[in-house]
Amino acid sequence: MTRPTSVQIREVGPRDGFQNEPESIPTDDKVRLINSLGRAGFKRIEVASFVRPDVIPQLADGVEVLNRIDVPADVRLMVLVPNSRGLDNALKQRDKFHEVAIFVSASETHNKKNVNRTVAESMADNDVIARRIVAEGLDCAAVIATSFGCPYEGKVEMTRVLDLAERFAEAGATELGFGDTTGMCNPAYAGDFFRAAIERLPGVEITAHFHNTRGQGLANAYAALEAGCASFESSFGELGGCPVPAGSTGNIATEDLVSMFHEMGVQTGLDLEGVIASAREAQAVLGRKLTSHSIIAGAINWAPSAS
């Protein structure tokens, strides 16, 4: 498989990152941060989730955020829905977004703890939701959490994950995201997995979503790239994690991922300095140090120093 020379990166911090903060970020700050991401060149941003506000109060202002953000017209906005009721609520804002994400965990235990459903129950609903999304003329992205391991069940068989992915594709999903929800993947397995996924699911966009829980996130992204993956999700400032279990830290930092790709000659279409500036602004809003390396080090400057 030839290494891609360009990739797409979806910024998921405004949803995946903000929902894991202990306190809700003020709406004004959310709007300002999303707008800054749009100016940094992102063409895809996940901005809201239509979940019950008592479950994830950090995203209770999703409708207001959707109505107030001001990003370039060519930016495709994504929302996440957990079930049919969530899609009903999302479709009330039909003209404010372009893509809808639906999800399931490959692990029965994680799925039960996350959404209080069996995998079979989630997939029965997802079959209906995916077809409704497509009928609305929206793009459907299906996400499979714990694709690379489960903290409760251990190893998750690749065939199980790809079987779920194939079912999503049959229901109309045009993108399949594979999530390393609690950071259990390693580079060797990432390479094997994405080679198999790309081979089994032709014509579907295959997206890698790695977490940096154990410090292997960028190495896993590199392995996925070498396997032919050209679509990634990441979060500025390394924000994010997973509500279950404790200790599941954030996504790989977008600015670190972009820096690595640019140094390799892989094009992202992003302004790295702009992404770093957005992450630093998020750090200021949150009032704590974030864990990305590029926030501290900045972009590499290859200009010779003055002598």
Rank of each mutant, 00 (worst) to 15 (best):
G149E: 11
C150F: 03
C150R: 04
P151Y: 15
P151S: 15
P151D: 15
Y152T: 10
Y152W: 12
Y152K: 05
Y152I: 11
Y152R: 03
K155H: 12
E157W: 04
E157P: 03
M158S: 14
T159S: 15
T159G: 13
R160M: 04
R160Q: 12
R160P: 03
V161K: 00
A165M: 05
A165S: 05
A165E: 04
R167G: 09
R167W: 07
F168Y: 11
A169G: 07
A169L: 05
E170W: 03
E170M: 07
A173N: 01
T174G: 12
L176Q: 01
G177L: 10
F178Q: 01
F178Y: 05
G179M: 10
D180R: 01
D180H: 01
T181Y: 01
T182K: 02
T182L: 02
G183P: 06
G183N: 06
M184G: 04
C185H: 05
N186Q: 13
N186S: 14
P187V: 08
A188Y: 13
A190L: 04
D192S: 15
F194I: 09
R195H: 09
R195Q: 11
A197V: 03
I198K: 15
I198S: 12
I198M: 14
P202T: 02
G203I: 01
G203E: 00
E205W: 04
E205T: 15
I206V: 02
I206T: 00
I206H: 00
A208L: 10
A208R: 04
H209C: 07
N212I: 14
T213P: 03
R214S: 14
R214I: 08
R214N: 14
L218C: 10
L218N: 08
N220M: 08
A221S: 14
A223G: 07
A223F: 05
A223N: 06
L225E: 14
L225H: 12
L225Q: 10
L225W: 12
E226D: 09
E226W: 04
A227E: 09
A227W: 08
G228D: 09
F232W: 08
E233W: 08
